[in-house]
Amino acid sequence: MMRKVMVTLAIIGFAFALLPLAFRAGVQAEPGALATEYLETAPRELGAANVVTAIVVSYRGFDTLGEVAVLFVATAGVGAMLTRKRLGPAAVGRRKPATEVLRTATGLLTGLIVMFGAYIFMHGHLTPGGGFQGGVVIATAVLLNVLAAPESHLAHGVMTAVEALSGAAYVAIGLLGAFLAWGFLDPRVMPTGSIGSLVSAGTIPLIYSAIGLKVGAELSGIIEALKGDRP
């Protein structure tokens, strides 16, 4: 009873804190000065058609580097938490084999899904999408394979190698920007090209591809760890 009163009081307090935000702030008429600056200079300076990508990869690239690091730490935490040594041998169960339909569809679709993921992160500077979305699509292909063959395991060495190499490539391209252009993660190491073509926007497509591979490997690692039965 006491707890219910406390919960109600906490919710009412939060409601009062959030009320002006929801009902009084209203909708802006114009973007702020910073946003207008980004909208006008990002296509001209960097040659990126998608301004959100330009902000994520270049203007706030350092943020994204930190975010990828947080993702790595969380994945490592999930993996460390759910090893068989910690859970004991009892955690190994027998799994039902997948149906014929699922196995055939997996064989047909895996290549297409991976190709779609690569398409999304390579075109991140032109269309909606980018490394994070493409990485998730690749992780979906891995999930499909895990569902089709529950007893199999991911090649752990390959996953670790992809993750480490793409992370190193990300930092290396960023450092190239510091030495050859105007700062860390500056994409103008390569010519920016014309807006709308695949090879444009300097190193933005390369950086986003590295992010896509890293995110895909990490999310696949999370799925594999939560599935269990890891040797």
């Binding site: 980004y38 994520v56 994070f132």
Partner: peptide, 14 residues
Amino acid sequence: DPVPQALVLTAIVI
């Protein structure tokens, strides 16, 4: 405004 979009994009993955 693209700035909040860029922030939320990474927050979802985290």
